[in-house]
Computed example of a mutant assay.
Amino acid sequence: MPDPGHEAVPAPGAWTSGPPTPRFDRLDALRGLAMVWMTAFHFCFDLSYFKVILEDFYRDPFWTWQRSAIVSLFLLCAGMGQAVALSQGQTAYRFWRRWGQIMGCALLVSIGSWWMFPRSYISFGVLHGMAVMLILVRFGFARLPALALWALGAVAIALPFVVADPFFDTRTTNWVGLVTRKPLTEDYVPVLPWLGPMLWGVALMRIEAVRSWFTRPLASMFKPLSVMGRWSLSYYMVHQPVLIGALMVARYLGWL
């Protein structure tokens, strides 16, 4: 793996797109699996929103634990993806282009959620958190050895449970994660504890056996998941409008 310490001082050509790099189809498929799970979860959430089913997505462990698992899987994949990108010498241009797409979509999510849920709009959801965490990993934590990443990941996960302060309970500070109470919002993915799964993803992809497994050919039956995983951001942005629109049409037609 190239020394990530060189990332802060781009080499000649680092601000160009660079040649295409090989895809890890199995990693894309794992991300695609997370997207299928997320879609099923959001469809049930939307059914509850339209009062077709009666479920408590905010307090019922059956739903809250699923949400945690889905977010963890996404961030684990993001960490593994960063490890792959760094090992392949991803240019600064390609990193910042992707980061800009994520941040732009995060702003759109905030605007859209404010329109639907003005009291509980998303000010720091999964895309906002991912944008911040990618910078921390790319230009900081990726320089550390794998053992330190495992340890810091565990600390990141544990810290919010042992350290909390009312200072972090406002919308301008709760992005850190050291809150004394969960904010009123439709999605909340602060840096702590969610940086933990991303750090573990980076460390996991440094294990030769794991990396070797992800480079193996993907069975044809899983190819659709791989395609979904390659377009994860686009899919994430359109899946809820499509689901909600379909349910609105179904209600208008009297099917709900």
Rank of each mutant, 00 (worst) to 15 (best):
M80A: 12
G81M: 04
P118G: 02
T21Q: 14
D46R: 08
S123H: 15
E7D: 12
F45L: 13
P160L: 04
G125Y: 00
M1S: 12
Q88W: 02
F124P: 00
M205T: 04
S113M: 07
L33F: 12
T21V: 14
W150K: 07
P61E: 09
R59T: 13
P241D: 09
I207M: 11
I70F: 06
D46F: 07
F62W: 11
L195P: 05
W255P: 10
I244G: 08
I157R: 02
P12F: 09
M130W: 01
S17I: 13
G201V: 05
Y93W: 15
G125P: 04
P20R: 12
A29M: 06
F95R: 02
A142Q: 05
H239Y: 10
N174L: 00
A246T: 15
R251C: 13
R67W: 12
M116I: 12
I111W: 13
L47F: 07
M38R: 00
Y235W: 11
I111E: 05
Y49P: 01
P190E: 00
M228G: 11
S72H: 05
L159F: 07
W194L: 00
Y49D: 11
H128E: 01
M248P: 08
L107E: 05
L218T: 09
G13Y: 06
V137E: 05
R171T: 13
R98Y: 03
A158C: 13
P217W: 09
L54Q: 14
A156V: 04
A209Y: 03
P4N: 05
G89H: 02
V249W: 13
R98K: 13
L243N: 08
F222W: 14
W231I: 10
P241H: 10
L136Q: 04
V176W: 00
G245Q: 08
L256I: 15
L47V: 09
L86A: 12
W63P: 03
L73R: 01
R143F: 03
L233H: 01
Y236T: 06
A246E: 05
G32K: 06
Q66S: 14
Y121L: 06
Y235I: 14
L73Y: 00
H239W: 06
I207V: 14
G254N: 12
P217T: 10
A209M: 08
R59S: 13
R31H: 03
A142F: 03
Q101E: 04
M205E: 09
V126E: 04
P10T: 08
M221A: 15
A106F: 02
V84D: 06
L76N: 08
A146R: 15
T170S: 15
F124Q: 00
W114Q: 12
L134D: 02
S110K: 01
W213E: 13
Y93P: 02
R216L: 14
T215H: 11
S123L: 11
V249T: 15
K223P: 04
A11I: 05
V162F: 11
H128R: 01
T91Q: 04
F214G: 06
Q90V: 09
V36C: 14
F43I: 11
L184H: 14
R143G: 03
M35D: 04
S110C: 12
G112N: 11
I135Y: 00
R211C: 10
L192A: 03
